[in-house]
């Protein structure tokens, strides 16, 4: 029996670049079921006219001056990288936009 949330899980896994095994998909879809059901009340609340709260603070216009700060030495930047070539991060061959 396929869960009604299975397509959503599959779509999200693709969007989130998470390879998920088929048997995991079913389990995750069941989790979706339970979690979203537990959260259902949220969707039934009347929120008309309420301004969204995007952060805990009402801050605005926090900016910095356009003044250079030192960049990292390249060795330090590249040290944690899984694969490095010639001062670049190296990844499997791809064409632009094809990821």
């Amino acid at each position: 029996m396929t869960n009604e949330n299975t397509p959503a899980v599959q779509k999200c896994a693709a969007l989130a670049r998470l390879q998920v095994e088929p048997e995991q998909v079913e389990r995750l879809a069941e989790d979706f079921d339970r979690i979203l059901d537990a959260f259902r009340g949220l969707t039934e609340l009347d929120v008309s006219g309420v301004k969204p709260m995007t952060g805990a603070l009402d801050l605005q216009d926090i900016v910095r001056a356009d003044e250079p700060r030192p960049s990292l030495e390249r060795e330090r930047l590249l040290a944690p990288a899984p694969k490095v070539e010639d001062g670049f991060f190296a990844v499997p061959k791809t064409v632009d936009g094809d990821a």
Binding site: D66, E67, P68, R69, L72, L77, L78, D86, F88
Partner: peptide, 25 residues
């Protein structure tokens, strides 16, 4: 002079990965 969200230089033509900091990487 600098990037949008960090203090790395906004200059063309530098050696690769030399104008990079924790923020922009």
């Amino acid at each position: 002079r600098t990037k949008l969200f960090c203090g790395c230089a906004n200059e063309f033509g530098a050696e690769p990965n030399t104008q990079v900091c924790p923020v922009c990487s």
